[in-house]
Nucleic acid binder design. Structure first.
Lengths: 150, 150
DNA sequence: AAAGATTGACCGGTCAATCTTC
DNA sequence: GAAGATTGACCGGTCAATCTTT
């Protein structure tokens, strides 16, 4: 009841380590193959799924990103010609981000390759049972996070 | 066989999201309760486990951190009085990082609280079976990462 | 030449403060 | 006053280039 508590810590460290290594792999792949970071790809993906345009607040929420973090990311993506900002005609405080043609081309091209990589990283080593277990456990953790106000 | 491929992507996104939220929780806890970031706490923990002193290369490797990343982190921790650098008498190229008294006090104080938080985040929602499943699946993923040179 | 470490330029992110509009 | 967004100061991290020592 006292030494075995390390199970939780081991699980936490394993999760951290796995995330870091997976992230590195995906990041370097996207950079090498498409000259784009995952953060930018995620923005492009959200915009693409939303039909090409999305309000900044919605975008920030869907990306689990702070407003200021998004603002700066969009600055850099704007400078790279991947997106543009558009005013909201119904509310002068609000803005939209819109995919440029370049941004749309990039996300279209990168989508399949990214999908294949993830399938490779997970599918080559996990069976359906593994994936189900992973999803179940991670969902439980998330539920716990939403519940308690610690 | 074609629509079900999204299982891998869903798992990947769930892993990302869970990691992000857990990290935020732990980070804000450490900052609030101990005035320290997780990155710094991890350095202190490694040094403490090694008896107070560790070579920079070893430290970087154990933290899954690049040499330059560690160098800058140590600069900031040095400025905060948490560690000091020491020359290696046997190799003038190499350096050690050593815990200061302040650093040791901090890691000692924070250790229990950090441990309790992790036990809370995992232990309150997962049973032994869940943890075993999580560890098994994450280990499989890690093994796949080590194997392929993609 | 290779190894250990650092520096400069950059990316991505937070928080607190601010500005404008609602 | 609250909401949407941005800015400045900062943390943490990578990569490429560099310096010193081996």
């Amino acid at each position: 009841m006292h030494e075995d508590d390390d199970h939780w810590m081991s699980a936490w460290l394993l999760l951290l380590r796995t995330h870091t290594r997976l992230w590195e792999r995906v990041e370097s792949h996207m950079r090498r193959e498409h000259g784009i970071t995952v953060a930018r790809f995620d923005v492009l993906t959200q915009l693409n799924m939303a039909g090409g345009r999305l309000g900044l607040s919605d975008l920030a929420a869907s990306l689990l990103l702070s407003p200021s973090g998004l603002s700066k990311l969009l600055d850099r993506m704007d400078a790279s010609g991947l997106i543009v900002r558009e005013p909201d005609p119904d509310d002068a405080r609000a803005s939209f981000a819109r995919l440029t043609a370049k941004g749309r081309r990039l996300v279209t091209r990168a989508r399949t390759s990214h999908h294949d990589l993830v399938r490779h990283l997970f599918g080559d080593v996990l069976n359906e049972h593994d994936v189900a277990d992973l999803a179940r456990v991670l969902s439980k953790i998330q539920a716990g996070l939403n519940t308690d106000a610690t």
